[in-house]
Simulated assay, not measured.
Amino acid sequence: MTYEETVDPTGAEAVRRERFGKLPERIRLEDTVEERPAVLPDPAKDTYNPDEWLVRTCL
């Protein structure tokens, strides 16, 4: 009796071979990178206000 005679191709092995029998398709490098346009920094966001610092630390 050979190995081919003992294997049942219609059972669970056939289902497994259909699902896992080949490698997934390659993903191109261009498809793995997300590009977003750069935004200009907001000049009002990072301004230093000495009065605000004084109020937050001294009160």
Rank of each mutant, 00 (worst) to 15 (best):
residue 28 R to L: 13
residue 56 R to C: 07
residue 42 D to G: 04
residue 29 L to T: 02
residue 29 L to H: 01
residue 14 A to W: 00
residue 3 Y to W: 10
residue 27 I to V: 15
residue 9 P to D: 11
residue 49 N to I: 05
residue 45 K to G: 04
residue 59 L to M: 07
residue 48 Y to M: 07
residue 59 L to A: 14
residue 40 L to N: 12
residue 13 E to W: 09
residue 17 R to D: 02
residue 12 A to Y: 07
residue 28 R to T: 10
residue 38 A to I: 13
residue 29 L to N: 01
residue 24 P to C: 08
residue 35 E to Y: 10
residue 54 L to Y: 06
residue 28 R to E: 13
residue 27 I to K: 03
residue 7 V to K: 12
residue 55 V to W: 04
residue 7 V to L: 14
residue 54 L to W: 04
residue 41 P to L: 06
residue 12 A to N: 14
residue 7 V to G: 01
residue 6 T to Q: 13
residue 54 L to R: 06
residue 40 L to R: 15
residue 30 E to D: 14
residue 24 P to H: 05
residue 1 M to K: 15
residue 57 T to K: 04
residue 39 V to M: 13
residue 41 P to R: 10
residue 10 T to S: 14
residue 44 A to I: 03
residue 26 R to D: 08
residue 29 L to G: 01
residue 53 W to P: 01
residue 56 R to Y: 07
residue 56 R to S: 12
residue 16 R to F: 11
residue 36 R to H: 09
residue 41 P to C: 04
residue 43 P to Y: 11
residue 57 T to Q: 06
residue 11 G to P: 00
residue 14 A to P: 01
residue 37 P to W: 06
residue 58 C to L: 15
residue 41 P to W: 06
residue 43 P to A: 14
residue 26 R to E: 10
residue 51 D to W: 10
residue 27 I to D: 04
residue 33 V to H: 03
residue 40 L to Q: 14
residue 53 W to H: 14
residue 12 A to G: 09
residue 4 E to A: 15
residue 38 A to C: 11
residue 57 T to C: 03
residue 3 Y to N: 10
residue 55 V to H: 07
